[in-house]
Simulated scan of single mutants.
Amino acid sequence: MVGPSPSSSSVVDSINNLDAGNPLHVQNSDNSNYVIISFKLLGTKNYRIWSGAVKLALQARNKYGFVDGSCLKESYATSDVLSAQWDRCNAMVLTWIMNVVSQDVYMGLVYSENAAVVWKELRETYDKVDGSVVYNLLQKINSVKQGGSSVADYYHRLNSLWREFDALTKLPKCICDLVRSSLLTRDPLPEVKDAYNVVSRVESHRGVPESSGGTESKQNATSFVAKTFNNNKKQFNNNGNNFTRGSSSNVNRGPNLNIQRY
């Protein structure tokens, strides 16, 4: 004999009893029209900033699990009520993402049904930084001038561009924190071959076989020294021009104006 189906009121009660820390919990302000950030994804040129902002917004509403794959529908398969609630939350997160992309990007997502799949596709499509993107950003940085703006406005504008540059040119992880600190505190910074020799000696002393790390690992651990920092140091030390950015953490605005960069 089949028992009576649960009433609509009991279903509502079970959903309302979800703890606020549960990713299936929906706040009163959560709806498909909600705009989670103030700017839209335009493509490669602002993907990393956009994705970082969206991530923070989703984490604040405890919904990031729907895009990073940690909140799966299968986890609620034993409950029809919670499974349906997962579908609702997934659709809501998906609309939030689609609300903050350009029309061109939107057209490629309109038939999607899974927020995690869309998030992955966006990363694979737009998380690419080529020379033209970095070059255009450096040109923008180089053209920033204080003009008639206040020091505070000038600082925040330039610091924002440098943060964007840092996001676009993330360095590979070093195999040894101590070695990395030692290399980065040298002035002038060492050449690639010198940095390679230092890391190789440390690895040798630790008894790590050459085959376990390989040349590729060592190059990944050291190539940033000359490829990124040395190039930036040579390119942006403009002898008191609009700004300089060397190996230190200061941003210099003009020949006599030094502001600590946070």
Results as ranks from 00 to 15, higher is better:
5 S>R: 15
55 K>H: 05
20 A>F: 13
16 N>T: 13
208 V>T: 06
99 N>E: 07
65 G>M: 04
43 G>I: 08
181 S>P: 13
21 G>F: 08
88 R>Q: 14
45 K>Q: 12
200 S>G: 09
5 S>I: 11
211 S>N: 14
98 M>W: 01
147 G>Q: 13
142 N>S: 11
247 S>N: 12
34 Y>C: 11
209 P>H: 07
163 R>V: 07
128 K>H: 15
15 I>D: 00
110 V>N: 10
89 C>M: 06
204 S>R: 15
198 V>P: 00
185 T>E: 07
20 A>V: 12
27 Q>E: 14
167 A>T: 12
176 C>I: 05
70 S>R: 09
222 T>F: 00
221 A>V: 05
140 K>S: 15
8 S>G: 06
137 L>M: 03
211 S>Y: 13
172 P>K: 11
68 D>W: 07
115 A>M: 02
119 W>S: 08
137 L>F: 01
131 G>T: 12
123 R>N: 06
147 G>C: 09
50 W>C: 02
139 Q>Y: 07
169 T>R: 01
97 I>M: 10
218 K>E: 00
86 W>R: 02
11 V>F: 04
258 N>L: 07
59 Q>W: 08
53 A>P: 04
227 K>I: 06
163 R>M: 01
122 L>A: 03
75 S>P: 00
26 V>D: 03
72 L>I: 06
160 S>A: 13
51 S>K: 12
129 V>E: 01
173 K>F: 03
226 A>I: 02
188 P>C: 04
48 R>A: 01
5 S>Q: 14
67 V>M: 10
253 R>V: 07
180 R>G: 04
106 Y>V: 11
232 N>Y: 11
216 E>M: 12
79 S>L: 05
74 E>I: 02
61 R>P: 03
55 K>A: 03
116 A>F: 02
4 P>N: 15
165 F>V: 04
64 Y>M: 08
22 N>S: 09
149 S>E: 14
235 Q>Y: 07
174 C>A: 10
210 E>D: 15
216 E>D: 11
146 Q>F: 01
174 C>G: 08
33 N>K: 15
86 W>M: 02
87 D>Y: 13
211 S>T: 10
179 V>C: 12
